[in-house]
Design a protein around this nucleic acid. Structure first.
Length: 672
DNA sequence: GAGCTCTGAATTTTT
DNA sequence: TTCAGAGCTC
């Protein structure tokens, strides 16, 4: 037995050295889940398993890379063979396999991927073609349509059922939606494009035939899956399909941290694992190495209120006298001041900014805070919310590469052609058709008999293709460079502040320089985009250290010395949009739990009493909030309450005002 | 048919 | 505030 196994506790070691057959590891927050997976990889390799026959499925590419790197330092054999491990997200692995097996499912090898925005645009296009936008009653918006579609395919449920339960306001459009989705699927096939869901669906379809399932599954001796509580039915079926000949599969998850129901994730996958893989061993990890006891107590109390619970409470040996603080602020601006003040104090005490994180439910909830951070010249990095890939200029640039890769990708074409003067939707459609008839060579735009106003633009565009097409599928950096020479001037007059955005283009070119294959570059950028760097309010001296701002979703799997959960007011956490059903509320509770359990040493939960409304002002333009409902009496008993604002300051009950809560607060205040 | 301007509506989480 | 869509003008 390798000596490094001594680094593990008994349960972790049992998981790492598990002999064969299916294994479910129920791992609470901070119990060394990542460590266990990394050691498992290292252990398998040390036992002679070929690294190229290990499949490690994680939630982000970064998570996979970190585990593999960690494994490689453990094995430390001089030669790093761990790089051959197949690691990545379900989507990225699906992409890789589909490049190999595209023929088997009838898709062209040069397929391109539609991100969510593209998928919505395609829905929008078809919706127009069907005349649905002309109906007297408003048809669901494109984003809603795609959400319904995605929900259906990811849950394997019928449209009717999904509409009734999750989208009741769209119920009356069932037949139109069905037709829309039918055309959407046909259109994607005609255009040789796959959306995110298709990557999983085609992977699943690939495993339909037993002999193919045996071959593809047979590539991997061992399959390891992280964050199993956030997988959906399709992903579970894929795993079963991948394990028809061997049963070596290890899944790790925590049902208390399932927060992706909106994407079809279901904890049933975890609960049913022993049924789906007979003879499964179950190991529980319950010792938390991350948080100090008071933080864990509060988190345990909060999750104890859940209506359904499967794992036991976590325990920790890390003592502390400091209770988590629940801070009532007068308004969001006081909340910002308080949080920044604390951040700086901890910084003075020696905790770097990057060991501190500010968490929130929705991306926009950090807006005012960001303004304040910029004003005070405090560097930060924001995770979640609007990302790199969603920025219009980034998508523009990628559209060129997509067209080169797959000339049938009409959405990419429309994006490019829309940039040209004198070209609108109609001309764009004709150009796409023209190129297709000319055999799909993008250079054919030159011979398109366009309107005079579009001549110059089209000629310049043709010149780009003349230069880039001969480069083939290699050297994406040079291709990006050539495209930028064409695109930069257009970009400069299209966008308000090109200076802020040009950094994105530069970093895109830099990222491209790390790739030899255009296809791989596109796939990585599209399936696991880097977080935006443009929000970085960097000062040259503090560049290596920055404060972390993150949505709770994006904070999954991370930990910090100090965590600030802001806007812990009902309506924001839980979000008003997610309180329709008990299941949704329960997921919001788990979200709160995830936020609290990110903290190692210090935890602050803040909420503003008063919110100002910038538009469609209610009454005098502000309203009063209530504390997040998950902080019940029991939970409050475990924290230190700090009131910067006094409830007496309320001068107007406002629309969110709850008289009962106010009276309780006053009763407590009488004795302070 | 392109492109501008005005109006009205809505506003989570992400691969 | 921002975005999508309708309607108007060149």
């Amino acid at each position: 037995m390798p000596q490094w196994l001594d680094d593990l506790n008994a349960e972790q070691r049992a998981a790492v050295t598990h002999g064969g057959g299916p294994l479910l590891v129920v791992a609470g927050a901070g119990t060394g889940k990542t460590k266990t997976l990394a050691y498992r990889v290292a252990y398998l390799i040390s036992q002679g398993v070929d690294p190229g026959c290990i499949l490690l499925l994680t939630f982000t590419r970064r998570a996979a890379q970190e585990m593999i790197e960690r494994a490689s330092t453990i094995v430390a054999r001089g030669t790093s063979t761990t790089g051959r491990v197949w690691g990545g997200t379900f989507h990225a692995i699906a992409h890789r396999l589909l490049r190999l097996y595209a023929d088997a499912v009838g898709i062209g090898r040069e397929f391109t991927v539609l991100d969510q925005g593209d998928a919505e645009s395609l829905i929008h296009l078809i919706r127009h073609e069907m005349g649905l936008h002309e109906k007297e009653k408003r048809f669901p918006r494109k984003g809603t349509c795609l959400a319904v579609y995605s929900r259906c395919v990811n849950s394997g449920e019928d449209l009717k059922h999904v509409l009734e339960r999750d989208f009741p306001w769209c119920d009356e459009w069932e037949s139109e939606l069905r037709e829309l989705f039918r055309r959407y699927v046909v259109r994607k096939q005609e255009r040789n494009v796959l959306d995110y869901d298709d990557l999983l669906l085609y992977w699943m379809a690939l495993l339909d035939r037993p002999e193919r399932a045996a071959e593809i599954g047979g590539r991997f001796d061992h399959i390891l899956v992280d964050e199993y509580q956030d997988t959906n039915i399709v992903q579970a079926r894929i795993l079963r399909g991948m394990r028809t000949t061997r049963q070596d599969i290890m899944v790790v998850g925590d049902d208390a941290q399932s927060i992706y129901r909106f994407r079809g994730a279901t904890v049933r996958n975890m609960l049913d694992f022993p049924k789906q893989f007979s003879g499964a061993t179950v190991i529980k990890l319950e010792q938390n190495y991350r948080s100090v006891t008071p933080i864990l107590d509060t988190a345990n109390l909060l999750i104890a209120g859940a209506s359904e619970r499967y794992t036991k409470d976590l325990w920790s040996e890390r003592k502390s006298d400091e209770l988590p603080r629940l801070v009532l602020c007068k308004d969001p601006s006081e909340q910002d001041d308080y949080v920044i003040d604390r951040v700086l104090r901890h910084y003075e005490e020696g905790i770097p900014l990057r060991r501190q994180a500010i968490l929130f439910r929705a991306s926009h909830l950090s807006d005012t805070l960001e303004v304040e951070l910029v004003r005070r010249n405090i560097p930060y990095h924001k995770f979640g919310g609007l990302r790199f890939l969603e920025a219009a200029h980034v998508k523009d640039l990628l559209a060129f590469l997509r067209v080169l890769e797959n000339p049938r990708d009409e959405l990419a074409w429309f994006r490019i052609l829309d940039l040209l003067d004198g070209v609108g939707p109609t001309t764009a459609s004709r150009i796409v058709e023209h190129v297709e008839q000319a055999g799909g060579d993008p250079r054919a735009v030159r011979s398109f008999p366009g309107p005079p106003a579009a001549r110059v633009g089209l000629a310049d565009l043709a010149q780009v293709f003349d230069d880039v097409v001969p480069m083939g599928a290699k050297n994406p950096e040079a291709q990006v460079e050539r495209i930028r020479r064409f695109y930069d001037p257009i970009f400069a007059r299209t966008y308000e502040n090109p200076a802020a955005r040009v950094r994105d283009l530069i970093s895109l070119e830099q990222i491209a320089s790390g790739y030899r294959s255009r296809q791989q570059f596109l796939a990585d950028v599209q399936l696991d985009p880097p977080t935006s760097t443009s929000e970085l309010a960097a000062s040259p001296y503090l560049d290596e250290d920055w404060l972390v701002l993150s949505t709770i979703h994006s904070a999954k799997g991370c930990e910090w010395d100090v965590v600030y959960l802001i806007h812990a007011a009902d309506g924001f956490l839980p979000s008003d949009l997610s309180t329709g059903s008990q299941e949704e509320i329960e997921e919001e509770r788990r979200l709160a739990y995830v936020a609290l359990t990110r903290a190692k040493d210090h935890l602050y939960v803040t909420w503003p009493l008063r919110y100002y409304h910038k538009w469609y002002a209610l009454g005098d333009g502000h309203s009063y909030a209530q504390l997040c409902r998950f902080f019940t009496k029991d939970v409050l008993a475990s924290v230190e309450e700090v009131a910067l604002a006094r409830p007496e300051e309320k001068d107007d009950p406002g629309s969110f005002y709850d008289p009962e809560a106010d009276i309780q607060q006053r009763m407590r205040d009488m004795w302070e």
